[in-house]
Design a protein around this nucleic acid. Structure first.
Lengths: 340, 340
DNA sequence: TTGAAAGCGGTACCAT
DNA sequence: ATGGTACCGCTTTCAA
């Protein structure tokens, strides 16, 4: 009989001790060779023997054992609940990962779907990450932050609409999005302005501040703002459009381009002309907005580069004593097109 | 002076030994209490003292130490390069995470942007995951699979258009998407059929098989298929539309609904009427397709539930000896609307 | 140039 | 009902 067809079923996982044995050296030497330790000189023949042994056994070092011994890791943990959608976010995310890798961090997204608050923080803390970058999918509490710091995290960074005690915060000024959108509508002479508030869960953190910003925009004017709950479904939009004329709205900020497309279609089908009767503004400046007729006015959001965030992480890790900073992450401005 | 305002800056991270000391018990007892070890009975007062000590110190166990001792972990590693976009994918992903959590696995996405082949497999293997579920963002090689198995991974599962040696494969039958779309067009009487091939990188694994499927659909018919390279930009679509009449195409499978919307708009702007002159079919059945005029025909793709995949992972982990299976992950069928 | 051994933070067996 | 202790895999002094 030759070897079994079953793939290495029960062969134990090789350790550095196995490599040492096969190469006829000590475990210390194996470590020196495989890590290219500069402080110690190993003869070339020995190096070769060690390398070959490692190769032959298919040896891969055990990260947990290593970082246990070292007393620290270079893991940056990103809690992830829902996969964030949208090109803006996804580009930002890719950049962040890439930049952190270049700074020699290991980026790990920890699936936190169904975890809440402190329970989540505990779960993350068990991995002893050197830094946590929370993109706001899971709500972090001040207590949670304390738990993480206590477990050795040098930096906790939140990216989102809110500020949290003890963290470096990259605030996303969502209110500004609503403010510039509605200010634009007011400037165009609109007076009764609707603001779409998506009913989908998980969007409150964005829609709330945007609505608030919209309200700020009409202060000291004779314009008014009306919240418009809407689900991302045709029926919901149709209902809303059916009551449109009686509502007397002459302008609407539709939360983003996708809700805007949904609503615009429903309005047009209901015979409400855009922009004559009602002006519409979306946000995110998606390609699809340019494909609509009339072309959709939108709020363009410029997010900070992932690279910048990566550098902030790195600085925070190197100097954990530094005072937590708060920086604004977004600039937003209206891109007027035909719908307003 | 009260305590420094600096947050616990240099206080060392508490260990179970610290908890033991504070509670006046041994480390063993701490472990028993905090893990609710059934095999051993600890008095209620002791339990309380231990819990209080742990609470007071903000103790969180060290996952690496634990799994080092245990000799295994319940980590399922998902390599992630680009955040996959689209609602289909993202729903599937959420379900998978959720279901794996319920089966008591820890889901970790490992940022692999910029890693290639075996190098990537090595990096993953260092974490000693019990299973790896590769969604195809990073190309896994048979050697990579061997490295992972050798490092203790009980199961390697690939989800994607391709099959790889030694893995459980959930094949996504992308060819079928192209096949049913084009068969539908042929059935509707179209004869010169374009197939959009996105030029964006990373989509080849999908667009290739879809084009191939389209070709299969015209075998034994008098219809022909023409590949149409397209970037997801207005200019690219405009160019394509400008050459439309001379190309003599009377039908097109547009890769997905978003490319379909882009192309349809460009065609309409160029005066090509849809569906009279040219029929269009997209795929993914996005809401936006229903909002277009004419309403967009599409291929609806039913992905397997994330739960099913989670169960497959679990089975594979429990019985690593089992023969790797290959299952089809998608069903797809045409949803005819007005554009074809 | 290489090896022996301590120790990182837990867990679980064996005593007491 | 609890405590002592060996050990998981690796790195890093210290000695030889």
């Amino acid at each position: 009989m030759s070897q079994s067809p079953r793939q290495s079923a029960e062969r134990p996982v090789p350790t550095s001790a196995d490599v040492a044995r096969l190469a006829g050296v000590s475990r210390a030497t194996v470590s020196y060779v495989l890590n290219n330790t500069a402080a110690v000189r190993i003869s070339e023949p020995t190096r070769r023997r060690v390398r070959e042994a490692a190769e032959e056994l298919g040896y891969v070092p055990h990260a947990a054992a290593r970082s246990l011994r070292a007393g620290h890791s270079r893991m940056v943990l990103l809690p992830s609940a829902h996969v964030p959608v949208g090109p803006l976010y996804s580009r930002f995310f890719d950049e962040l990962q890439w930049a952190l890798r270049r700074l020699d961090y290991t980026v790990v997204q920890y699936g936190s779907l169904g975890l809440e608050g402190d329970e989540a923080a505990r779960a993350w803390a068990e991995l002893r990450p050197v830094a946590v970058v929370s993109l706001g999918e899971v709500q972090l509490t001040p207590r949670g932050v304390k738990i993480l710091k206590r477990s050795g995290a040098k930096a906790v960074i939140t990216v989102g609409p809110q500020r949290i005690e003890g963290t470096h915060a990259l605030v996303m000024d969502q209110a500004r999005v609503g403010r510039v959108a509605v200010a634009h509508l007011v400037e165009r002479g609109r007076r009764r302005i609707g603001v779409v508030v998506p009913e989908e869960p998980g969007l409150e953190l964005f829609s709330g501040p945007r609505l608030e910003g919209a309200r700020q925009a009409v202060e000291d004017t004779d314009a008014t703002v009306v919240p418009l709950p809407l689900r991302y479904e045709e029926e919901s939009a149709t209902e809303l459009a059916a009551r449109w004329r009686e509502s007397g709205l002459d302008g609407v900020f539709a939360y983003n381009d996708e809700y805007a497309m949904l609503l615009m279609r429903a309005l047009q089908d209901a015979g409400v002309s855009v922009p004559d009767e009602t002006a519409i503004v979306g946000s995110d400046d998606l390609l699809l907005g340019r494909l609509l007729r009339p072309r959709l006015s939108t709020v363009r959001i410029d997010m900070v580069l992932g690279e910048e965030l990566a550098e902030l992480v790195d600085r925070a890790v190197r100097d954990p004593e530094a005072v937590p900073s708060t920086r604004d992450l977004m600039a937003s401005r209206v891109v007027p097109r035909e719908s307003s």
